[in-house]
């Protein structure tokens, strides 16, 4: 399969290359914004992008918050992108290579914001998928909860939190938990996210934690402990392992994002569906990453991993 056939099969891949985005996921944030307009708010100042590498969401944030804006509009605007992996620089974005669960990271961001709270926090992070659906969904939810911990310490009241989710068997549990912290929780599926994928995004609007709850990041306390006391009853610690009980579950409103004219990520396009010439092949923007199994691939290529002993 050549470069072009992937372009035909996946218009967003093609578009990302054309527009200089590091990954096609940039369109997911753009399409979420088309419906929610959270990035079009003139009062939006401080923004945090968690699990940001390779940086396509930060690119969108930078574009939306700075491109073509007046000096007045961009006054006090600040984007901080955090990831454990290093990231190449993006205009108007301060990148931090740091652990989102660590209190030090929180302090660094707050320092960058001059101790002001953030207006918007987003995370497009996803763990390695093992194929064990329950584990993969759990780890993804833990990742969201970790992002949410930091968010709870940094987001202003009324702020917005957006994160990637997998809509599996326990997604309604997550919706229910988020309901304790935000006024409104929507499950949004941008058109650029494939229909065959379990991926979607939670858009949590109006950060509104319980008034009696104090959030403190501590490296030795678990996510469960962090959120205990915030009406997330299941997260409290018992002295005796409790018997099984059904978790609280709620279904969040579903919203398809991106207008009908947006490309369909499940469709195969024809060359003549567009004015532009699909035959011009574009090189990928991001050079391929180094997978952990790089050496195994090399051994396989050189015929060293064969069936015979």
């Amino acid at each position: 399969m050549g470069k072009n056939s992937k372009d035909k099969r996946d218009m967003y891949y093609r578009k990302a290359k054309e527009q200089g985005f590091r990954a096609r996921s940039a369109f997911k944030l753009l399409q979420l914004n088309d419906d929610f307009h959270f990035l079009d708010d003139p009062n939006l100042k401080r923004v945090v992008d968690l699990c940001a590498a390779p940086g396509s969401w930060s690119q969108v944030l930078s574009q939306k918050l700075f491109d073509g804006k007046t000096a007045e509009e961009i006054k006090d605007r600040k984007i901080v992108a955090v990831d454990l992996q290093p990231m190449s620089p993006i205009n108007h974005v301060t990148t931090l290579q740091a652990d989102i669960t660590h209190p030090k990271t929180l302090k660094r961001i707050l320092d960058l914001f001059g101790n002001e709270k953030a207006d918007f926090v987003c995370s497009d992070g996803a763990p390695d998928v093992t194929g064990l659906h329950d584990l993969d969904e759990y780890v993804q939810q833990q990742l969201i909860m970790s992002a949410l911990q930091l968010t709870a310490c940094i987001l202003k009241k009324g702020g917005i939190f957006v994160a990637k989710i997998f809509r599996g068997r326990d997604i309604d549990m997550l919706y229910s938990q988020l309901g304790y912290l935000f006024d409104k929780v929507v499950c949004a599926k941008p058109k650029s996210s494939r229909g065959t994928s379990l991926e979607a995004f939670i858009v949590c609007i109006g950060y509104n934690p319980p008034s009696d709850w104090v959030s403190t990041l501590d490296v030795n306390s678990s996510v469960e402990e962090f959120f205990s006391g915030c009406h997330m009853s299941k997260l409290s610690i018992h002295d005796k392992l409790p018997s099984w009980q059904e978790d609280e579950r709620t279904i969040a409103k579903f919203m398809s994002c991106g207008n009908l004219e947006s490309f369909d990520s499940d469709a195969t396009y024809h060359l003549d569906d567009f004015k532009e010439d699909l035959n011009t092949s574009l090189d990928p923007v991001q050079s391929p990453t180094n997978p952990p199994y790089k050496k195994a691939l090399e051994l396989k290529r050189s015929g060293k991993l064969t069936r015979a002993v």
Partner: peptide
Amino acid sequence: YNKVFVCDLTGEILSRKTLQGERSILY
């Protein structure tokens, strides 16, 4: 979260052990 619950056979938690300062999630 790299924590260990030591429980008796009825599920009563006798102690909780952890490695301080390391909070990486485990597969």
